[in-house]
């Protein structure tokens, strides 16, 4: 089943690269959903079936749909693709990819040493996750509700359409 891991990893990496190089936002979103789905498969293989399901339901399902909504509300047409093409400047890419490449190489050197032996993955079941979530992490859950409240109030305040602009 290891080949399945490498297949999913390859798909995830390919789709992610496609996301950041697309000119059309909707195409990028579709690649993003693909990347998230293959990541979900990787989570499953790593013994986290609960997270795999959430990745599909919440990330690919809810958060990406939010993006689609905004694209539709903004009604971004072909002119934005043209604009993107103008911004798509190879020289900026070259320099930044080089810098990021250095970071990646450093990370890989540090990570490669880590665990050369394949580990027998033991599944951590949703049962265990829930027990932990509502046991030691109870305060975290309560605080996360405050985090979401801040997001809710903020999105409401910023997104609200005003009837009239204030007098200057």
């Amino acid at each position: 089943m290891v080949w399945l891991f490498y297949l999913a990893a390859a798909v995830a990496l390919f789709c992610t690269v496609m996301v950041i190089t697309r000119l059309n936002a909707v195409h990028a979103l579709l690649y993003m959903v693909m990347a998230l789905l293959s990541l979900a498969l990787i989570f499953f293989l790593l013994g986290a079936p609960f997270i795999a399901a959430l990745e599909v339901i919440v990330y690919a399902g809810a958060i990406m749909v939010l993006f689609v909504f905004v694209i539709m509300m903004l009604n971004i047409g072909p002119q934005s693709v043209d604009q993107e093409r103008r911004w798509f400047n190879l020289s900026t890419w070259r320099g930044l990819v080089f810098i990021a490449g250095i970071l990646l190489i450093e990370l890989i050197i540090a990570l490669r040493l880590g665990f050369p032996e394949p580990l027998d993955v033991t599944e951590v079941t949703p049962h265990q996750v829930s027990l932990s979530l509502f046991g030691p992490y109870l305060l975290g859950v309560e605080l996360a509700s405050m985090l979401l409240l801040a997001g809710l109030v903020g999105a409401y305040h910023l997104g609200r359409r005003e009837q009239e602009r204030p007098k200057k």
Partner: peptide, 23 residues
């Protein structure tokens, strides 16, 4: 976990506060 959640509660509130007057 509490580090992360505290930091993000702070940040998320600040995003809106910075743009508070909106116009």
């Amino acid at each position: 976990v509490s580090f992360f959640i505290g930091l993000e509660t702070l940040s998320i509130s600040l995003y809106t506060l910075i743009a508070y007057t909106r116009f």
